[in-house]
């Protein structure tokens, strides 16, 4: 029964969500809105579960013997405590400790991680774009044209470079992308149908 009930709920709601797309009646819309509300409510609870899972996980490591991981877990638990206390007891508006920490600690740290992309793109480009064969040469030349075409320098070198870059993006690249998109869309449809019909049950945890 503990497996059948979720499968039944999934089948009923999945079928309803499919059918209601074609039914404009108010009753259908009202039920649809109610389902959307419930999804958000359930998700909010899942965040609570996530927070508990996070705290438990790091509490175990912080009290354990793994010297490599322990300092990081202690730091995470401290961070959670500080942000929680600051947000709950001293407000979250401008001028509060929470806001200051958000602006001056969290935001710069996250921006740092994002900016790492430029370094990784550079090293990946150095290693990855090798003219090993004729296909790789095509890829390499296309990459250089697109990169030049997306910056003012490309226009300075020749007005054809931005045009060529646009063509590469809008014709060959787009054709390949659309092919992949169609495949993904069909995969999505098939998987969705398997989920609705109860063929795909992994999301319940195992087969």
């Amino acid at each position: 029964m503990h497996r059948k009930l979720p499968l039944l709920i999934c089948f009923a709601l999945g079928t309803f969500m499919l059918v209601q797309f074609f039914v404009p009646h108010k009753a259908s819309t009202a039920l649809y809105e109610a389902i959307l509300d419930w999804v958000q409510i359930i998700y909010a609870f899942s965040l609570l579960v996530g927070a508990m899972m996070l705290i438990k996980h790091h509490a175990v490591i912080a009290s354990g013997r793994d010297a490599k991981e322990r300092p990081f877990s202690i730091l995470i638990l401290m961070g959670i405590t500080v942000m929680l206390v600051a947000g709950l007891f001293f407000g979250r508006g401008e001028g509060t400790v929470f806001h200051w920490l958000f602006q001056n600690v969290q935001a710069p740290m996250q921006a740092t991680m994002f900016s790492l992309l430029s370094f990784f793109v550079a090293s990946a480009a150095y290693r990855g774009f090798r003219a090993r064969n004729s296909q790789a040469i095509f890829l390499l030349v296309a990459a250089i044209i697109v990169m030049l075409g997306r910056i003012p320098v490309g226009e300075i070198i020749s007005s054809y470079i931005p045009k060529a870059a646009d063509w590469i993006l809008n014709v060959p690249s787009m054709a390949a992308r659309r092919g992949i998109y169609i495949g993904i869309a069909l995969g999505t449809i098939a998987t969705s149908l398997r989920v609705i019909l109860g063929i795909e049950r992994t999301y319940l945890g195992g087969k």
Binding site: I180, I182, G183, I184, L186, G187, T188, I189, A190, T191, L193, R194, I199, E200, T202
Partner: peptide, 28 residues
């Protein structure tokens, strides 16, 4: 893309999942 969606059927050799891959080919 699709290779990834095929992974579950491929690894588990589940005939129902593999059959949906055939269905996807037909739709394609």
């Amino acid at each position: 893309g699709e290779e990834y969606f095929a992974a579950s059927g491929y690894l588990a050799k589940d005939p129902l999942v593999l059959s949906s891959l055939k269905g996807q080919d037909m739709l394609k």
